[in-house]
């Protein structure tokens, strides 16, 4: 099993050029990267037709490691660049990977508008509930009451539920997974990438270095256990009260709807303009 998995990974990685990576030992980003590669392999996508674009932060370094067309953009703006790429060359499969601060703070406006516009892009948002690279400042997803380097006395802001935000903003496909549920994540990523329209996959991930350390979850294993305990499948959550769901979150597919995507609509406009 592990040998097969490794060979798949090696085929898609710039393994001879860019390793070791910059992430801390035990970081969830590596699990997301592995999952992404298995999903791409499962879909049979060629490396030349794939684009992986990122913003800034620990997640922003992911494109360096994969042997696709890769792009490391500015903070929060990955979706804007991805929009240009997809519209200019619709045959490309364009995936963005962002962090929680990246996608929902500085890039929050781009995020909701990309969802509303429904361009055929996939947005993977690695939610580690903190700004990791800059030293553990609180992000829009840092839970109320928890601690961060800029919330030394406890966080008094309220967290965005990213997946639910994406559903409301109109994304065609929305799912949430965790780095603990890696096999499930493979499937969610594959479905999101295959979906025509804007897809969002939020991945709850561990930053034990910056978040866990300040919140009694000092190591990756403790954080994994936390995700295992707090994650509730969408089906089971439907049968639970709001009180029971209080500090838990749903995992699975939150939305999967079919609606016209931007490129299909724009092609119709072109045809109309050309007949005019």
């Amino acid at each position: 099993m592990s040998e097969k998995t490794n060979s798949v990974r090696h085929d898609y990685l710039r393994h001879d050029k860019k390793f070791p990576h910059v992430w801390c030992p035990g970081c969830g980003n590596g699990i997301v990267l592995g999952s992404l590669i298995r999903a791409i392999d499962k879909l049979g996508l060629g490396k030349d037709e794939l684009v992986l674009a990122s913003g800034i932060g620990c997640s922003g370094r992911m494109p360096v490691y994969v042997d696709f067309n890769t792009l490391h953009t500015t903070h929060g703006r990955a979706l804007t660049f991805a929009t240009g790429i997809k519209l200019a060359k619709p045959a490309l499969t364009v995936i963005t990977v962002m962090g929680d601060g990246d996608a929902t703070a500085i890039g929050g406006n781009h995020f909701i508008h990309a969802a509303r516009r429904n361009i055929d892009l996939t947005a993977i948002i690695i939610n580690n509930q903190i700004y990791g690279m800059t030293g553990g400042q609180y992000s829009p997803t840092t839970p109320y009451g928890s601690f961060a380097s800029t919330a030394a006395w406890g966080n008094i802001e309220h967290a965005f539920p990213i997946a639910e935000l994406a559903v409301t903003a109109g994304a065609s496909f929305v799912a949430r997974g965790t780095v603990y549920h890696a096999a499930m994540l493979d499937g969610l990523l594959a479905r999101g990438i295959a979906k025509k329209g804007f897809s969002v996959i939020e991945v709850m991930s561990n930053c034990h270095t910056q978040y866990g350390r300040r919140n009694q979850m000092n190591d990756p294993v403790t954080m994994m256990r936390h995700f295992k305990e707090k994650a509730v499948s969408v089906d089971r959550a439907a049968k639970m009260s709001a009180e029971e769901m209080n500090d838990r979150f749903t995992i699975g597919v939150l939305a999967d709807v079919d609606k016209p995507n931007y490129m299909e609509e724009y092609q119709k406009i072109r045809e109309r303009a050309q007949q005019h």
Partner: peptide, 11 residues
């Protein structure tokens, strides 16, 4: 951002 993306894609 979008015009940079489009240009990177060759347009």
């Amino acid at each position: 951002g979008a015009i940079i993306g489009a240009s990177l894609a060759g347009v």
